[in-house]
């Protein structure tokens, strides 16, 4: 409910409520649940709620936790949406949203920047190539983003196994040299 600013803003609040106030989980169990649900698609908040709800009270717990997470948002958005269309007929409201447009673009730039930093794409050539290629494929060639997601995962897995064989070879080579000397 009090989580303006997306999933990560929510985590300390969930942790406080679940681990300290209610004592449902230990901090360690909570961190495990985050690192696991982080690998899943979809909103972090609902994934985390599903996971914790299930661990506490099985399926009913999971459903209760999901509904508890999404209901306040749905209600608030529906209320706003109901007045939105009428409000947009006011010239001053139109002026407000005309001003907001460039700020939304700035938010997109900031989301790209943050993700680029966390994926360290400037330090990793392969990531940089994948990022630029995805952008070009979707933006100019109209490839569906779903293929991009699958392709990026496959590339990462292949690159990882190639790297592993290389390091294995290098280690083997290294021990051969040692035995010669």
């Amino acid at each position: 409910m009090f989580t303006i600013g997306g999933g990560y803003a929510m985590l300390p609040i969930i942790q406080e409520a679940v681990c300290h106030e209610k004592g449902w989980l230990t901090d360690e169990e909570f961190l495990d649940s985050i690192s696991l649900t982080n690998s899943l698609p979809g909103p972090l908040a609902t994934n985390c709620a599903t996971f914790i709800g299930f661990r506490l009270k099985k399926i009913p717990g999971a459903i209760a936790a999901i509904l508890g997470t999404i209901c306040p948002s749905i209600i608030i958005i529906l209320l706003i949406a109901m007045v939105f269309t009428t409000a947009m007929e006011q010239p001053l409201v139109q002026a407000f949203f005309r001003g907001v447009g460039p700020a939304v673009f700035a938010l997109i730039v900031s989301a790209v920047y943050k993700l680029a930093k966390s994926a360290k794409i400037l330090e990793n050539k392969l990531s940089l190539i994948v990022a630029v290629a995805s952008f070009a494929l979707i933006g100019f060639l109209k490839i569906t983003p779903i293929l991009i997601v699958i392709g990026a995962a496959v590339i990462a897995l292949v690159a990882d196994s190639v790297k592993k064989t290389k390091t294995a070879d290098a280690q083997k080579g290294g021990s051969d040299n040692e035995s010669h000397s």
Partner: peptide, 19 residues
Amino acid sequence: QTAVKGIRPGAIGIIAAAG
């Protein structure tokens, strides 16, 4: 873990294209 990390650069492209 590897696959999910690998998707991140793809996600950057998806967001930038919407941009």
